[in-house]
Design a protein around this nucleic acid. Sequence first.
DNA 1: AAATATCTTAGCATTCCGCTCGGAATTTGT
DNA 2: ACAAATTCCGAGCGGAATGCTAAGATATTT
Lengths: 145, 145
Amino acid sequence: MHLSTRGHYGLLAMFDLAEHYGSGPISLKTVAERQNISDNYLEQLIAVLRKAGLVRSVRGAQGGYILAREPGSITVGDIIRAMEGPIAPVDCVSEVEPAECDQAESCITRLVWTRVRDKLTEVMDSISLADMLRDAENLSIAKKV
Amino acid sequence: MHLSTRGHYGLLAMFDLAEHYGSGPISLKTVAERQNISDNYLEQLIAVLRKAGLVRSVRGAQGGYILAREPGSITVGDIIRAMEGPIAPVDCVSEVEPAECDQAESCITRLVWTRVRDKLTEVMDSISLADMLRDAENLSIAKKV
DNA sequence: AAATATCTTAGCATTCCGCTCGGAATTTGT
DNA sequence: ACAAATTCCGAGCGGAATGCTAAGATATTT
């Protein structure tokens, strides 16, 4: 049950953009440095996010990336699906076009994986970038006290 | 969010053993054929389950494998941990010795992954092989009607 | 025109996956 | 005692994915 760095870095980058939402485009280099990711690599990852319609890009000098929608309407699930494909512990319970299996009807393990998948999507879809911003604020307040 | 075939096949094999719990040792070949897994490969996987203390082996003719404990006391979580290692979407929230990260204290994505991990373990630890046997029974009853 | 960015594609070393194979060790049955 | 059935163990291997690097094309601002 492991995510690749795609999903991991993808969420880091998106959260970084969320933290600076409203201040114009943020350059890839800035995000990469702040999040400690190779900018060459992040370049590829953010291309995926752009194609998925989660970020907008502004080319040229002073360009960069901006969230395509407000932080409240982008969830962790959106980001992970974009970066890692449909959420599914095993292929036969994939969210989209599940792999076929001749014993699917009577397969008990399939029931298990369905429950696991449902819990996964439930959590991931319930957390938005806005929720994370709120968490960040609470955390910094707690620290100051 | 994908399992490897290790976990997938591991659960299939364990459930197969659970279905025949109490009828003496089941040979690897039998399980492999019933579950449609290469027996050469399953041989390696079941070695892992044995080393994890989840199955007992009986060598020699008429030998095979038996669940080490009753089906009610073996959970999906036990099996997945044995086959795939500690449950963790990313290394910094691993159940055992999480990877260190200098920003761990203030990392918001880490909170997200912790919640995901907790949901994952919650589901997996709540389903035992006995539960699955019950599901199988309900399913076959439903079909007959 | 120069500087600053994104965009696109190619490549590449390493690791992991999913297996196959061969043979040693152990137990049962005849 | 011997043959058959089985687990046990380790080596190896092709293919795919991972996590990058690198280089140049394109667009925009100053």
